[in-house]
């Protein structure tokens, strides 16, 4: 109803910017549904963060105890640093590779379709499959390190912080680069050929047209991909759980995994809720900053600039 009323009202101003715009009612069903199953539980988590609760009986309010304890918890503080390192490493390794692969896959070479189909299979694998597969592959005696001692030495990849973080970054790339490649492939295909022709006339080679034409045209895709990597990287713990269990010691315990540990190994739901809240707020803030700083939320097409 609201929609129709608004539609009529706005159409009385012909030529105005909001001609035939849909009312807010269009957004309501999805928002209510989402609010009920995601935002309400999140509010509940926010309340739990001020309680002490092991999942049994009634949560006991304990004020800001969980927050104070977390602020002093060395593992929590260390985990923030590890999270930053993992997210940054993820972005700097995955972004260039995804761009290169996406641009390449957008071309018209023979066999490209088959190759890119295979490349995207990791997208389809569940975490159970990835865990079993990679655990077998990184075994120091019988996996890949055992076959290539000149590269991996004694294969004790999970024995040092650098090794553990390296493994996490590599497997993370294996798992997620296909997805980001897909984003760039789509965007690269949509670049008007006329831009390349113009660059060629100006005497630009492959490398120069890549940097002068392709990269600027992929700007919006980079932002999308960046937001997904940031948010995904901040909140991901599956690979940590599966591959290093946060070790050696706590050297690869990122904040999301620390939350999982608190919640489902220690059943300290109060502290886990506080960590979850920190993560959700930080991730949302960062993605909002990215979206705002780049003007992405203005919802304007790159095409308009042409």
């Amino acid at each position: 109803m609201t929609t129709l009323a608004q539609g009529k009202r706005t159409s009385r101003r012909p030529g105005g910017p909001s001609v035939g715009r849909p009312g807010f009612a269009w957004a309501v069903p999805a928002t209510v549904f989402f609010g009920l199953f995601a935002i309400v539980p999140l509010v509940f988590v926010a309340i739990l963060s001020f309680t002490s609760w092991n999942g049994l009986g009634t949560p006991q309010f304990n004020g800001v105890d969980n927050w104070v304890a977390l602020a002093k918890d060395p593992v929590m503080i260390q985990s923030l640093g590890i999270t930053v390192v993992l997210v940054v490493l993820g972005i700097v390794t995955q972004t260039p590779l995804s761009i290169l692969l996406g641009v390449w896959a957008a071309g018209h070479q023979k066999n490209r379709a088959v190759l890119s189909a295979i490349c995207f299979v990791p997208l389809l694998l569940s975490s159970a499959a990835i865990s079993v597969l990679w655990r077998a592959l990184i075994d120091p005696n019988f996996g890949i390190p055992g076959e290539l001692p000149w590269l991996f030495g004694n294969g004790n990849l999970l024995g040092s912080q650098a090794g553990a973080i390296g493994v996490l970054t590599f497997v993370g790339g294996w798992q997620f680069i296909p997805f980001h490649t897909l984003i760039y492939q789509g965007a690269a295909r949509a670049i008007p050929p006329v831009l390349y022709q113009a660059a060629q006339i100006d005497g630009a080679g492959t490398v120069r047209s890549f940097f002068n034409v392709t990269i600027p045209q992929l700007r919006n895709s980079m932002i999308t991909s960046l937001v997904l990597m940031l948010v995904g990287g901040l909140t991901a713990f599956d690979t940590v759980l599966i591959l290093t269990a946060g070790g050696p010691g706590t050297a690869s315990t990122n904040t999301a995994y620390y939350m999982y540990q608190k919640a489902f190994l220690g059943f300290d739901f109060g502290t886990a809720s506080a960590i979850a809240l920190v993560l959700a707020v930080v991730a949302t803030t960062i993605s909002l900053v990215v979206v705002r700083a780049t003007g992405y939320d203005k919802m304007r097409s790159t095409q308009e600039g042409l």
Binding site: A27, G35, A256, A263
Partner: peptide, 25 residues
């Protein structure tokens, strides 16, 4: 645009963090 931000927030909610409240719901 508030709704859009709400969904950006939703992107950042790890399901593991809210599974217990969801179970009660």
């Amino acid at each position: 645009s508030l709704v859009f931000r709400l969904f950006l927030l939703g992107l950042a909610i790890p399901a593991q963090a809210v599974i217990v409240p969801i179970f009660y719901l």
